[in-house]
Every structure is written in structure tokens, then in C-alpha cells.
Design a protein around this nucleic acid. Structure first.
Lengths: 229, 229
DNA sequence: GGCAAGTAAATTGTATCCAATTGACGAAAT
DNA sequence: ATTTCGTCAATTGGATACAATTTACTTGCC
């Protein structure tokens, strides 16, 4: 996605983001600059830049002279994120019902197929794929700004779900993804929006889950391999 | 707004942002880290962080090993920003028609009064105030995420207007701001949205304007004074 | 034993230093 | 005259070194 600028900062940024989204780094976990940098074999400078960007995206928070932590969105903040997400994704639907690019349906269906491939398993991969479906939808609008914002709120929702949802239960999600595609293909704007609202609403209304901390080194060592060029 | 964390990075960030929004730093103008840092009396490290954040907000772009420039939004990108802005501000209207905080109308009317005070002058101050009205609206929703996104798109719109608008012509804008307040107070959601759409639409449809470059030092020297603690 | 103050360790905030990349200017060859 | 290659200046990409701040522990006093 953003691999065009292949700087170290971007690499670390992507790795950390993935680690957070896939729940390897759990909410509230500390992210000391030198620990992370040591694991990835880069200097604090790089990690620092990545953390600044992650903070801007709401995935980590930094307390002055204390350091960076994986964000722990409050229920109120979660509500805010979902509200914005629904607003943005409805706009995505509206645009796509009017103009869908040529290869749009092929890409969407291909994505749903890859989602079905990991169906049943509630692992990190299915979490990531579920989110990427919505990002793909947004990208198909051709509006880069819209796509970026959708991407951000989807990522934050993934983090929120990792805190408050019992399980991501992507089983029904995949079906609803197919339904959304069909509604858009039929040009039925209202129905597509209704499905999306139900999809997001269903995802939003869940019970809580207690986080369990873990060692940072052991987690990052897995992600670090990919940086060895 | 974000003065709670009073780090140097934030200070430089705010200063540069204001300079860009007030058209002191014009689109396409270079922002060398050394030059900026020297003017503000801080190191490149600080400037660097500020520039990274400004890039995330779409106000500057950085080319690898080339440096940072004030962003020059294309017409296509401008269209994207306006599309997202309309979507977000409509949501703001919808929320405020349902629940407006107690002191909301007082704050809004006070703001309009201060806008009228500088009416006629098309200076930087009126540009900034016109944008801050919309940010204030968004903040009154109580949704921080929504407010942040609205703030970003409003800032980008200010930059866009500085490129493509003949004049900001805040004369009619102030009147429309009052109309929006009244529509919300009346609970007339649709009318408020219509006015807002017209307000943004009118702002969006303008001709082009050729930028005129200037010396960076002379511009920043003015903003730099505020950093002397 | 509990509480408070002081001190030390850890971590971030900031500055400076070196290396790598890019763009421009100029000279030489076709 | 135009194009191409090479060198150089300018600027960023990244790392290291130092300062400031916070936390935690220890020690002494009540």
C-alpha cells in the first residue's frame, strides 16, 4: 500500500501497526523506543518517527516523558470512532453505487474468496482481512482522502474490537460482505447502506474482554524477521 | 487546542500550520529543515517531527531526499477533500440538530460576532476565523474523532482556496454561518444541511490563481517571535 | 511498621554528527 | 549546438551523544 517510500521509518511503522492490529501487541502495552529499536535493529530515531505517526492515527498514545503505549480506547472514544466510520462508509457506498470502476467487482469478489479461505479460524489473518475488505471498498471510490480516513477508522475499530469483543467472529462478516457487494451491484443504495449499518452495528454491540499482557521482545522477534533485507 | 502538551515540536507544528493557512507560506514553497529550525531557534529534529505531522495532515509533501514543500493540491485532490468535508459536516449538522450542548449557541454567536468584526478585510485573520467556525461546530458534537477529521479537511480546504480562489470573500460566508446556526436552532436538519452544502459548494466552485513565491526567512521571522519564551 | 524524603536508574526530549542521495552546473565529445 | 557524463554542493536519512524529567527504590525518621 504505502511501500513506495521504502524508508526504514515506514517499515517499522507498518510492522508495529500490523502487530497492534493482529493483537500481538495488546492495548496498554508499553513500547519503549530503544527496546523496539533494538529488536528491529534500527535506532531510536526511526522508532520515534513511527510512533509519532501511529499516535496521529490513534493507535498509540504517548505520555510526556513516559513513553508510548498501545492505545486503550475508552468506550466513549469507541463510540466516536464507530460514528465516524458509519458516516464515512455510507459515503463510500453512495459513491460506489453511482460509479464502480471496471475491475471493482472482480477485486471485491477475489477478496471475499480469500476471506472464506480462512473462515472459521479467528486468527490474526482473518481479523486483518475483514478490515481490508472495507479499505478496498473505500479505495475503489478513487477518492484517496476518503480511503485514507476509512483506513484509519477501520484500523482503530480493529483495535477496539480486540478490547471489547469476545471474538471477531468473522463468519457472519464474510456473508455480509457478499451481501454488500450484491446490493451495490444491484444499485440498491439504501439496501447496501442498511446492510453496512447492520454490519457495523452488529460489530459494535459486544461485551467486554480483559486484556492479558505479554513480553514485548518475544512478540516483536517474530515481526522483526521481515526487516532483515 | 493542543497546547496541553507544550513540547517544542507542537509549537513549531502550530506555527508552521498557521503560516501555511494564512498564506504566508504559499503552495509549492520549500521548507528546508535547516532554514526553518534556524529561524525558530530549534534543531532539525524538532522541525522534522513537525513536518512529518504536517505531511500526515496533507498540508505539506516530502520528496525523498529532496525535502518538504507546502502542498499543492491538484484539482482532483481538492475535489476529494471537498467531498469528504461535505460528508463529515453533514454528519456534524445531524448530530447538533439532535443534541446541542448548553453553551453551544452562545459560543457560536460569539464566534460569528468576532467574524463580523473583521468583515470586509480579506486578510489572514478572516481566513482563519472562517475555518474555525466549522471546527467549533464539529467540537460541539462532543465527538473528538469527528472534530479532528473536520479540522483537518477544513485546514486543507483553506490551503486549496489559497490556490484556486480569487478571494476568500468571507462577506457572504459570515451571513451563511448565521443562517446555519438558526437552522440548527430551529431543528430544521434538512435546511441546515442545504445551507451548508450551498456554503461549501459555493466555496468550491471558483477559478484559479497564480501563486507568487517569496523569501522564507522574512516570512518566518514574524512567526518566530512567538516562540521566544 | 508505615510514611516521607532523597537518590539512583530508566526513559524520553533534544541536539549534533556522519553517510547517502539527489539536483545542478559545467566540461567534453559527437 | 546538443547531449552526455562527471563532479560538487545542498539537503535529507539515520545514528549517536547529551540533557531533562519521571519513576522507583532505598534509607531514615516518626
Amino acid at each position: 500500500m504505502s511501500d513506495s517510500k521504502t524508508t526504514l521509518t515506514n517499515a517499522v511503522h507498518d510492522l508495529l501497526r500490523r502487530a497492534i492490529i493482529e493483537q500481538a501487541l495488546k492495548p496498554g502495552m508499553r513500547l519503549p523506543e530503544d527496546t523496539v529499536g533494538e529488536q528491529f535493529g534500527v535506532s531510536r530515531t526511526i522508532v520515534r518517527h513511527a510512533l509519532v505517526r501511529l499516535e496521529n492515527q490513534g493507535l498509540v498514545i504517548t505520555r510526556r516523558n513516559r513513553g508510548a503505549f498501545v492505545a486503550e480506547p475508552s468506550k466513549e472514544e469507541a463510540q466516536h470512532v464507530f460514528e465516524v466510520r458509519r458516516c464515512l462508509e455510507n459515503e463510500v457506498i453512495r459513491i460506489l453505487c453511482r460509479r464502480m470502476p471496471g475491475s471493482g467487482y472482480d477485486q471485491l469478489e477475489a477478496h471475499v474468496r480469500s476471506e472464506e479461505k480462512v473462515k472459521g479460524k479467528d486468527g490474526p489473518v482473518s481479523i486483518r482481512l475483514a478490515g481490508e475488505f472495507h479499505v478496498l471498498l473505500a479505495e475503489l471510490t478513487g477518492n484517496d482522502v476518503l480511503a485514507r480516513y476509512v483506513s484509519e477508522v477501520v484500523l482503530r475499530c480493529s483495535l477496539i474490537m480486540s478490547m471489547y469483543a469476545r471474538n471477531h467472529s468473522s463468519d457472519c462478516a464474510v456473508d455480509e460482505h457478499s451481501q454488500i457487494i450484491e446490493a451495490i451491484r444491484a444499485g440498491d443504495e439504501q439496501r447496501a447502506i442498511d446492510i453496512m449499518d447492520h454490519h457495523l452495528g452488529a460489530v459494535a454491540g459486544r461485551a467486554e474482554l480483559s486484556p492479558k499482557p505479554d513480553s514485548i521482545q518475544s512478540i516483536l522477534s517474530h515481526y522483526g524477521k521481515e526487516l532483515a533485507q
